[in-house]
Design a binder for these strands. Structure first.
Lengths: 307, 307
DNA sequence: GTTTTTCATAAGGACGACTTATCGTCACAA
DNA sequence: TTGTGACGATAAGTCGTCCTTATGAAAAAC
């Protein structure tokens, strides 16, 4: 009973509809004997005649009628499946689980999500915000499909696609407005407020200052858990901090702080998408990276215009 | 896209469940390469990867998950279909369209229907009552599955199975009770009330009397459309009539008429089932004829006991 | 009686699916 | 670093399945 085939169902359906072996065979684009044999095989598999053959006509038996109903259901489900497959060719479909680091998420996600929904209607988007190492782990475990992090990640199993590079800007109290912009050495002497450990942005900031990234920080109690908190701490006069360009608009809009850009050398980070090299979404993710690159470019230009 | 096979769905489902080519292949009782090839073929047909292959695991893609849902639906429908086929092996199932002549229907149908329902629960029984020629036509057209008529029908395309033979009895006014039973010749001189033309029972009665069956009947206006009417006409003193043994119980219960049985020669008819020789229900109909034969036998004995 | 129609059967050939054997790659361990 | 094992992909060959054309059988139509 395990040798029923969809082909048999298709032939059967055709014969049921036409009531004539020759015409049904023609409709199936096969020869009449081929159809006869498949029908016979189907009847043997099912253990009962599906048709009553007569010189004058070929009629479904009761049994055949019931089987026809069920067979048509199956063929319809098959058509649906094929249609679904056709419709999802090369498109992002269903669930997309995306991970984003905290220093990117609040600034990139709104436009990113809007773009994705616009381009891939019906996409079931799951967003997860956490630190890079966790995202890498989750990528490797297949718990998320793609992550947006600072490059490089340098995981052999992952493919990286750079999206954009952005500078870090100095955030200092409004009172410092107009003061000369410190260079790296001067910055090292200032009270630099940082994110908690684990944030890649923390390490990048420290690296820019040429400070040991893993050395104990005496004022660890002041480490913030978000850029927003950092800016508020600056506003409160606790020190200065760095934030990425992308965050300037959101985080300094309503804060009385002063923004200054470094010159020579300029601190910066490259944000990129990463995914498992083996991911079948590779093509779509590459396309998606293009989209993000464009919309991030627009974002950057807007930020630059603001500055 | 027209080469999707149920086999591929079964393999696919197994791989989705096991997440491991080797074990899935084992579950399908095939070799691992065979499974690999079918999965590959399926992915090519659908135009998108179903699995993400990794050294560590084999995971469904989003696309694969959706396809898995639909494939499982199809496999489930297939199982149902197979189960239905298995369950209906050799049994009467679904609709059974049965035609019965009017001089049999009222007396046989109650017990026949009860028997059929008892033996083939869920049978969708359609009963049609009309004259023999129409029943034969409907049989040949496939509009009914079986008919119960007086034999012989002598249609080459139909198979006949006798059920029982029953005598005709004379029905005359109560006043005639105890009078000698007329023989055929005497009967010919009496006012014999008959059914309308077309009823085989009419022809059989006339044949018994040796009257021309197709000759114009001067008192055609008196022809009745049912045995019940005939008996009432006898009761009204319009003449005498013949009715089949089977009808005696029902038709004379509440009528003040007298019943007499002929002797030597006894008029009689043979009731039988007929169906298309090509009908796939042949086996079941034969079995059914056995059942009817038995229950009609009981009926006949009861009638004989009453007489 | 002959022809036509229609479905079943027969014989042969092409294609597809399965098998075993082997490869390539990564992970893990010495 | 270098085996070693696990795992999936690939290769080659065989066998079975399904299709084709040709033919048969039986009834209907002419």
């Amino acid at each position: 009973m395990k040798n029923l085939t969809l082909k048999q169902f298709r032939y059967f359906e055709a014969l049921a509809r036409h009531g004539h072996f020759g015409r049904a065979a023609e409709a199936c684009a096969i020869s009449q004997p081929a159809l006869s044999m498949q029908i016979k095989a189907l009847e043997e598999e099912l253990g009962a005649p599906l048709f009553e053959r007569d010189r004058r006509q070929v009629r479904l038996t009761n049994f055949g009628e019931e089987i026809a109903l069920r067979a048509r259901d199956i063929l319809r489900a098959l058509d649906d499946l094929e249609g679904f497959a056709r419709a999802s060719r090369g498109r992002l479909v269903g669930r997309l689980r995306i991970g984003v680091i905290p220093t990117v998420a609040p600034y990139l996600l709104p436009s990113l999500i809007a773009d994705l929904i616009r381009l891939h209607g019906g996409l079931d988007l799951h967003v997860r915000e956490t630190l890079t190492p966790k995202l890498v782990q989750e990528l490797n475990d297949g718990r998320i499909d793609v992550a947006i992090v600072a490059l490089p990640v340098s995981e052999p199993s992952l493919t990286e696609a750079p999206l954009f590079t952005e500078e870090f800007v100095l955030v200092r109290p409004r009172a410092d407005e107009g003061q000369p912009v410190p260079n790296r050495e001067a910055l090292r002497e200032m009270r630099l407020l940082l994110l908690e450990e684990g944030h890649c942005f923390r390490e990048q900031a420290l690296t820019f200052c040429n400070r040991p990234t893993h050395a104990a920080q005496p004022r660890g109690l002041l480490d913030a858990s978000s850029l927003s908190t950092l800016v508020q701490m600056v506003e409160a006069g606790l020190g200065v901090t760095l934030i990425p360009e992308m965050a300037v608009g959101v985080e300094t809009r309503s804060a009385s702080v002063s923004i200054a850009r470094f010159t020579n050398p300029k601190p910066s980070r490259t944000i990129g998408m990463v995914w498992r090299t083996t991911s079948p979404l590779t093509a779509q993710l590459l396309q998606m990276s293009e989209t993000v690159r464009r919309s991030a470019g627009a974002l950057g230009q807007a930020a630059a215009a603001r500055a």
